[in-house]
């Protein structure tokens, strides 16, 4: 696994605290998660002690798809935080509950194994390269979050997902700083 110390010095990383602030600004009250090493230090640990967010720890990511979908019926906003392996493992639930049922499943997915300096499609990791094409095949919009400026889109993307009752996926391409 590459570390930040191995990367070019001019790479920028997103701020975990700013991502959490954007999530809260979008009205998210629950975060449902299976831990992911990409987002562990910068997102999951800080939000696990954030008094404004309720963390629901689940054993498997497809549970989270159902939980977020069920919560949406009274407009309780939730975010499913996981790794791309969990996304892959949950595709049928996402297909049924998010896409077929047109529910606002908002996902934030750490791309474990993605090289910070490369785009997902250029990654040497097959498991990373296939994520965006799979989301496109499922008509699920996504946004890559890997620089500080990307964070500005998070609030609106979540709000739009709930307004339009559609599923949305953030892809975390570089580990957020704590």
């Amino acid at each position: 696994m590459t570390t930040k110390a191995d990367q070019p010095a001019d790479l920028q990383y997103p701020s975990g605290s700013e991502i959490i602030a954007a999530i809260k600004a979008a009205g998210v009250k629950f975060v449902v998660s299976v831990p992911d090493i990409v987002t562990s230090d910068g997102l999951l640990w800080p939000l696990s002690s954030d008094p404004e967010l309720k963390l629901v720890r689940v054993c498997k990511e497809d549970e989270g798809v159902s939980i977020c979908g069920a919560m949406s019926y009274n407009n309780t906003r939730a975010l499913l935080l996981m790794q791309q392996t969990g996304l892959m493992d949950s595709l049928n639930a996402i297909r049924a509950i998010g896409v077929d049922y047109q529910l606002p499943i908002c996902m934030m997915v750490g791309l474990q194994g993605k090289e910070p300096e490369l785009k997902p499609e250029d990654s040497a990791s097959y498991g990373v390269r296939i994520i965006e094409p799979i989301l496109r095949a499922m008509d699920i919009p996504s946004r890559l979050i890997e620089t500080p400026s990307d964070i500005a889109y998070i609030r609106n993307d979540i709000e739009q997902a709930y307004r339009s009752s559609t599923t949305f996926c953030f892809l975390i391409g570089r580990s957020p700083t704590p």
Partner: peptide
């Protein structure tokens, strides 16, 4: 509930 097995998880969310 959409996908088989998911009832208990929907219920938790509700």
């Amino acid at each position: 509930t959409g996908a088989m097995g998911q009832a208990s998880s929907h219920a938790l969310g509700l």
